[in-house]
Amino acid sequence: MSTGFGLMAPLLRPSDASAPNVEKVNAELFTLTYGAIVRQLLTDFEDVDEVNKQLDTMGYHIGIRLIDDFLSKSNVTRCTEFKETAEVIAKVGFKMFLGVTATVANWDADGTECSLILDDNPLVDYVELPETCQGLYYCNVLCGVIRGALEMVSMRTEVKWVRDVLHGDDTFEMRLKLLKQVPEEYPYKDDE
């Protein structure tokens, strides 16, 4: 398999025609490195829940840096509503960094909660979960990445897996919930 993981041009929007020639990385190196990290965390923490937490935190730290990479290379502009944000993550973000796209589905009535469905997830290409790791959300790093990235553009979110092929489900489904939109205005009042 040689589909790249790095940033994959061309991107989806017409405005991205000028997207730079971004480097690609060997997919096996990427999946094997990720696998090694998860294994090491399991060895270090000996507790599946703790590993889920660590993966999420690691993803968060990646996300708060990656968002600028995304913004500088994708040429996307400010989203007007959360629905647009979800679409951009699914169609541009996933494409850029994982080489696949996700589908946005199952919106709630308020438009603050939706699912991102991944039919193809390159992180798990060679993975089978052993009996002892049934509670492991192997790809939890992705939830953290999205949470971290959105936090940097003023959206507090909660992101978690609800369906996982490694747990016997038919697809990968991530639930994305907008908790709070922190206004970007100058945070001081006149009389302070």
Binding site: P20, I64, R65, D68, D69, S72, K73
Partner: peptide
């Protein structure tokens, strides 16, 4: 400035030892 932003992303944010 856009190019500076690109360099900032690559050489600052992607440097694991840089504190955000």
């Amino acid at each position: 400035l856009k190019n500076v932003y690109g360099l900032y992303v690559d050489y600052v944010l992607k440097n694991p030892f840089y504190e955000v």
